[in-house]
């Protein structure tokens, strides 16, 4: 009678083979997921660069004119992305300028000042704000923010194109990146060592002095990480921005009441055909967008390292 408590060598081999195959499957899925980012760069890059190559034929674009061009006229076949980049930077940083202080102060209030049972409510509210889809913010913005901007323009004696333009985009983006920055602030403020606070209080600082000068300083690394995430969202936000940007054909524009055009609104608006130069050049704009996102991330990482160098981390 065979010994049922032990595996035969055949069974053992089969068990090992199954293990090996399954490990292979898991590794394959892991590598497939990791490859996606490279594939995105490769495919979008290849399609975006082809319009500048001689093989594109008659409609080939000049890379220099594309990067420095100050007008985008689909009707005339003129594609210059220079002013669009400037407008994108202006609107995104403008939004960050409004949202960043508000988000950090809100995070401070939620973690340090709010009563304990309110803290959970507020944190959930912030998370829900982050979960609201872009297109809903877009409907809200094109219905109400544009009206607000139109009224503001009236005070300054300015005329708007129905309220669409830079200022509307700034307000919209400020609302949209607020929860991103705020939830990072909540996490990093909550992680600050209690001993630091107690030390500050023992030295005679008031609770708010401690919060503003010690807690925020200690949490700055995470807060700036939130800023990076927020800016990334602002640069890449497409649907809602397109609804209120107004798609100016020339620029850059400094007047906050003028229509503007961001990289994403350029890629999204007037999308009809799926072939031809007008379609392919959107991929080129996509490359520029990715370069801006990566570039701004690096820049803020540098700034963060400088600020982080003041005290020990």
């Amino acid at each position: 009678m065979p010994d049922k408590t032990r595996f035969s060598s055949k069974q053992r081999k089969r068990r090992q083979a199954v293990d090996k195959v399954m490990r292979g499957v898991f590794l394959f899925c892991g590598i497939l997921s990791a490859l996606m980012i490279l594939l995105i760069f490769y495919f979008v890059g290849q399609k975006g660069i082809q319009v500048f190559l001689p093989s594109y034929g008659e409609k080939r674009q000049s890379l220099w004119n594309f990067l420095t061009g100050m007008s985008w006229r689909q009707d005339r076949g003129v594609y210059g992305v220079g002013f669009i980049v400037i407008n994108t930077l202006i609107t995104s940083f403008g939004a960050a300028l409004i949202a960043f202080p508000l988000a950090v102060l809100t995070g401070l209030f939620i973690v340090k000042l709010a009563p304990k049972n309110l803290r959970v409510v507020f944190t959930t509210v912030i998370e829900l704000l982050a979960a609201i889809p872009s297109v809903v913010y877009g409907v809200f913005a094109s219905g109400s923010i544009t009206g607000l901007v139109n009224t503001i323009a009236g005070w300054f004696g300015q005329i708007t194109a129905g309220g669409v333009g830079s200022l509307s985009v700034v307000f919209l983006l400020a609302i949209m990146i607020f929860p991103t920055i705020c939830s990072m602030a909540i996490v990093s403020i909550g992680a600050v060592d209690r001993q630091l606070e107690l030390g500050s209080l023992a030295l005679g600082a008031t609770p708010m002095q401690t919060n503003m000068k010690v807690v925020l300083t200690a949490a700055r690394s995470g807060i700036f990480a939130g800023l990076i995430l927020g800016l990334g969202r602002a640069f890449g936000e497409a649907t809602a921005v397109t609804m209120v940007a107004g798609n100016a054909m020339i620029g850059p524009t400094i007047n906050p009441f003028d229509p503007t055009r961001t990289l994403t609104s350029t890629m999204l608006s007037g999308l009809k055909e799926t072939t031809g130069l007008d379609y392919d050049i959107r991929f080129s704009a996509g490359i520029v967008l990715m370069v801006i996102i990566v570039g701004s991330n690096l820049l803020i990482h540098q700034i963060r390292r400088r600020i982080g160098g003041v005290t020990n981390e």
Binding site: G30, M36, I37, K47, F283, L289
Partner: peptide
């Protein structure tokens, strides 16, 4: 692998649209 997947989550959704078509 970990950092590649991390990077993927920072890509804006419109770029994913381009990737889908290409």
């Amino acid at each position: 692998i970990r950092s590649s997947i991390e990077m993927l989550s920072g890509v804006p959704s419109i770029i994913f649209g381009l990737m889908g078509m290409a």
